[in-house]
Design a protein around this nucleic acid. Sequence first.
DNA 1: GATGAATGAGCTTTCATTCAT
DNA 2: GATGAATGAAAGCTCATTCAT
Lengths: 189, 189, 189, 189
Amino acid sequence: MKEFDKKEAIFNAMLELIVKHGFHASPMSDVAKHANVAAGTIYHYFKSKDELICALYVRHKEQMNEILFKNDDPSRLFKDRFRIFYLLLFNHYTKNKNEFIFLEQFINSPFVNTFSRADLQKFDQPTYDFIRKAIFTQVLRDISPKILISMIMGSAHALIKLQLSGEYNISLSELETAFLVCWDGIKRP
Amino acid sequence: MKEFDKKEAIFNAMLELIVKHGFHASPMSDVAKHANVAAGTIYHYFKSKDELICALYVRHKEQMNEILFKNDDPSRLFKDRFRIFYLLLFNHYTKNKNEFIFLEQFINSPFVNTFSRADLQKFDQPTYDFIRKAIFTQVLRDISPKILISMIMGSAHALIKLQLSGEYNISLSELETAFLVCWDGIKRP
Amino acid sequence: MKEFDKKEAIFNAMLELIVKHGFHASPMSDVAKHANVAAGTIYHYFKSKDELICALYVRHKEQMNEILFKNDDPSRLFKDRFRIFYLLLFNHYTKNKNEFIFLEQFINSPFVNTFSRADLQKFDQPTYDFIRKAIFTQVLRDISPKILISMIMGSAHALIKLQLSGEYNISLSELETAFLVCWDGIKRP
Amino acid sequence: MKEFDKKEAIFNAMLELIVKHGFHASPMSDVAKHANVAAGTIYHYFKSKDELICALYVRHKEQMNEILFKNDDPSRLFKDRFRIFYLLLFNHYTKNKNEFIFLEQFINSPFVNTFSRADLQKFDQPTYDFIRKAIFTQVLRDISPKILISMIMGSAHALIKLQLSGEYNISLSELETAFLVCWDGIKRP
DNA sequence: GATGAATGAGCTTTCATTCAT
DNA sequence: GATGAATGAAAGCTCATTCAT
């Protein structure tokens, strides 16, 4: 078994357990069991439980940026690009529930404070640039990009959470309407 | 010291500790210390740590509903009523950071699963009714109230989080613009 | 069972185990077992294993100073007082092997560095004063008390170690000769 | 790199780490790192950590006997030979602090029990013979050589420890006086 | 009601040692 | 010979909870 495999196995085991039981109810011994490695092995790849959890966050953010922006085509109309962004976000997380739940748990826990504000901003740089340019070109409302991004992502995440909760099943047409709710709010009037 | 005082002291101590260190780093012994009671005393008021945390959540939700709706005047224009709701939400949480951080941490942790879906909905009933009626009277978009509420609250909370993060200071006029971003998205076009 | 009893039981259990197996082979779980307390109980009385070990050292030094000096009579001839000191030292340690072995292990381990030089000197203050005065009154050689004390205690401890090793059994008359070996070396010629 | 070099490197790394952190805080992985070899390599040269530590002790004792006795000239006056022995001992250890601290730590730890009494005596045979003959020729007091050696070495080591502690700096003339303290005690009166 | 010493299961982490390469 | 990833038993320590006072 190659190193790559074990590290991945540990990541996946930790992700699954955190989602199911939370940080404090996911002992390293269980992570080891689920990853099919010895407890000590985890400590070859990660200095501590905290570091493993933070590495999981970093890995996720990098993967998401890849997913959201790898096919973005700046020559197209912004509204269309933004719609694709919105749908990619929704689709990825509703199909990868664990990643979403982990993410929400992480960013609302004191673990985030492990990172400096600058580090955290770095992960969101692609989204920040995406929105900032659209404000600059007068496509979006003339308001701080930070505020706009917060509102966009906040409402999108809430929508994803609703879907994942099983409390309500969002149809495709409702998703398109939700996109419009967002778009009508942020576009320059 | 009256019973009331001790229970309140325990609530406040737990709230403060959770916000500062997270659930798993807030031992009951520390709660006792901060509340100036003996460790055993907590167990007169709450069956367990989990129960205490859940009771804290219930207390908070009830207080918030009181704050948000006690002065709501159904005879006024919905847009105005909604604006007040939006500002009350923002103002309360930006002035009571601990409550907000606890809330976000709680609802994104496996603790929420302590409650049945029905119980959780009960806490949000006032908001649900508030929005549902406005859809019914054709003031708001014709879309599931659950979706609309998710998006409204998601974006509002994200805004509050931005303000509390210290990363950006939202001015009064920006707050009014943010309200419009929200309103323009949800109002019936 | 009173607090005093448990703390004492922990002290004694730790002492015995360290002597038998060394610091690193005396797990807290064994200490707990030998002291008939729960593992966690040790941590009510001592913040950590290291602190327990250091407290053991402090306790020992205080007891020894009591033993060595409580009956010292400054009105007597110094040689006699010193002889009593010498014999008390030898007798106490040969009858309390564990204390001696712990002490030697402790002061030759990196644990001593827990204490500042000043703290360590404080424990030896009574002996220091005892010897310094005898140098001042021209009974002992005119040499730094630190040097004299080192040589006295070093040779006395080595003698005790010889006796405790079982390699050789020191008779009473040999002990008196050993005292003279010491005395003839340190007295003012 | 020759075998010799690696074994030496391992010895030196272990010595340094033990002195700095003690036996129980000197992991083999650190020894490997400091010696610039792989962890597994240590096990080609030594069966276990304990064996490595014991081998270190043996190596040291052999080196010391070489140093102390290689230039001893039995035709000279015993007092002079003993003085040289005394000064060699002091000089070597005050210039090789690590060796001294390791030695003291080792002989006061349960590790010594790895060796039989006979083995331990073998290492001290040269010193034993040196002193025994001087008693036999009536130069030294008529007392068991074991007692005499214990007292000599005990006081000498205590002196070295004083110097190494940095607590007091022993001058050359004080060292000569210390030698006389020793000599006046042991010489036949 | 209130206390806080005591519990002990269970946590994170370490580290001597092995073995496939 | 040499490597260092992998092991897993065992360490130090924490903390929710209990119960005699």
